[in-house]
């Protein structure tokens, strides 16, 4: 009996802490999402799933949901694809590697909001750096109005998203690469494996757990990432670059529909919960093997 209860008693303090930080706000948000709430957070009548019904009838919300999934997938996959070669290069021993590593990591030190605001200026149609650079190189004759339409604004936002996710991802991969023993490559080379085979058969499988972690963590960060889109377009024009977080912010703090905003955040929480479960399962599988 003693032995059976002891683990639970030991877990209790951290459980209470987690409950206070996670479960209590969750309960509050659920309650907000099921009630009529005025713009100052005062709870009125219970209205059941009305807020959810309104949301699913709103084409802007549906579009924002799909766009969020596209945004997350593009940024995460783009980041992984670019980060692997960067990590491989930075793992090689070459003159000036220290500086190269610093250059790759440097953007990490700048707040995301500031990076996004700098990009907003750079993308300005008439006085932006990007247009003047492209004109200077003779690539374009007339200015491109990057942020005027979703067709140019959203790809740029994805590009910025990838750019700011690289440092973190490369760091994870470098950690992974340093744990690959050199004698494996030596042995493979003696057996006649070329560098592509070495990458495919040794590096990639051994890097796999790190790719998994980078995948899930990036997914969670990017899914919730607010500053890039907010600072460049605020989800506009006409909601055409909205993702769920910017939609949530507008609904809650601009329009003052706190009940609907709570419902959006619950839906986001549900989607992220699925990712987290995947992450935990991956981590457990790693621990077993």
């Amino acid at each position: 009996m003693q032995r059976a209860t002891a683990p639970y008693v030991l877990i209790l303090p951290s459980f209470i802490l987690a409950a206070a930080i996670i479960l209590w706000p969750l309960k509050e948000i659920i309650s907000l999402s099921l009630h009529d709430v005025n713009r100052f957070g005062m709870i009125r009548d219970f209205i059941g799933l009305q807020h959810f019904r309104v949301l699913f009838a709103d084409p802007d919300f549906i579009a924002a949901t799909w766009r969020t999934l596209f945004w997350t997938a593009s940024v995460v996959v783009g980041t992984l694809v670019i980060s692997v070669p960067i990590a491989l290069i930075l793992n090689e021993d070459f003159y000036g590697r220290g500086i190269a590593r610093i250059l790759i990591m440097l953007p990490w030190a700048i707040s995301l909001t500031m990076t996004a605001i700098v990009w907003r200026w750079a993308l300005n149609g008439e006085s932006g750096m990007l247009n003047s650079a492209l004109r200077g190189l003779g690539l374009i004759d007339t200015n491109i109005q990057w942020l005027a339409e979703a067709s140019t604004a959203f790809p740029m936002q994805i590009f910025i998203g990838i750019l700011v996710s690289i440092p973190f991802t490369v760091t994870i991969f470098l950690g992974g690469l340093s744990s690959v023993p050199d004698d494996l490559y030596e042995a493979a080379a003696t057996e006649g494996a070329g560098s592509w085979d070495q990458f495919r058969l040794i590096t990639l499988p051994l890097l796999r757990p790190f790719i998994n972690i980078a995948f899930v963590l990036n997914t969670i960060y990017v899914f919730n990432s607010f500053p890039i889109i907010w600072a460049t377009t605020q989800g506009g024009p006409a909601n055409s670059t909205d993702i769920l977080v910017t939609y949530l912010y507008k609904t809650g703090f601009r329009v003052g529909k706190l009940g609907e905003a709570a419902a959006v955040s619950l839906i986001m929480f549900a989607i992220l919960l699925v990712f987290t479960i995947i992450y935990v399962r991956l981590a457990m599988r790693e621990a077993k093997s």
Binding site: G125, E126, L147, A148, E149
Partner: peptide
């Protein structure tokens, strides 16, 4: 008008005016 009006906020248009554009 300046091209791409949907990328110009109030401050942006004021800046274009200050720059004589």
């Amino acid at each position: 008008t300046q091209p791409g009006v949907t990328s110009y906020s109030r401050e942006d248009v004021q800046n274009l005016f200050k720059q004589g554009k």
